[in-house]
């Protein structure tokens, strides 16, 4: 669905913008999770087919009829994985933020430039 793709892309761009302009590490991480959400929207929108329903067979959706009735199950499967991975990365980033804060009592990314060149 194009509309959702557009929302997804906008979220990606906004997330990138936040990630690149905000100096606070936590804000950067939030930017990341916004990007993630955008990507997930994108993936799901790829699998959607107008007017069709979820690929779960039950009393209202018959097995024989399913091919013409359901949306693509694969992107759903993929995005599930992506969401879990996103959580893992976010958690790790936050742990990094905590650790960095403990070193310098600061969350400003500009304070962590001791390695350069």
């Amino acid at each position: 669905m194009t509309l959702v793709s557009i929302i997804g892309f906008v979220l990606i761009i906004v997330g990138l913008w936040g990630m690149l302009t905000q100096n606070n590490i936590i804000k950067i991480i939030i930017g990341f999770s916004i990007i993630d959400t955008g990507i997930h929207l994108l993936i799901v929108s790829i699998g959607y087919i107008k007017g069709k329903t979820a690929p779960i067979i039950d009393s209202v959706l018959l097995k024989t009829d399913a091919v013409n009735q359901v949306v693509d199950p694969i992107p759903s499967a993929l995005v599930l994985t992506a969401i879990v991975i996103g959580l893992a990365v976010t958690a790790l980033m936050l742990v990094y933020a905590v650790n960095l804060y403990q070193r310098k009592q600061s969350l400003d990314i500009n304070d962590f430039e001791e390695l350069k060149w």
Binding site: I56, I57, K63, V70, I74, S76, L80
Partner: peptide
């Protein structure tokens, strides 16, 4: 590919939730 999953999935794997069978 998806067609195959939707068409054969329920009979091959027996899962009503096709997303689950894919996953």
């Amino acid at each position: 590919l998806a067609k195959k999953y939707v068409k054969d999935g329920p009979d091959e794997l027996g899962s009503a939730n096709l997303v689950t069978s894919v996953i």
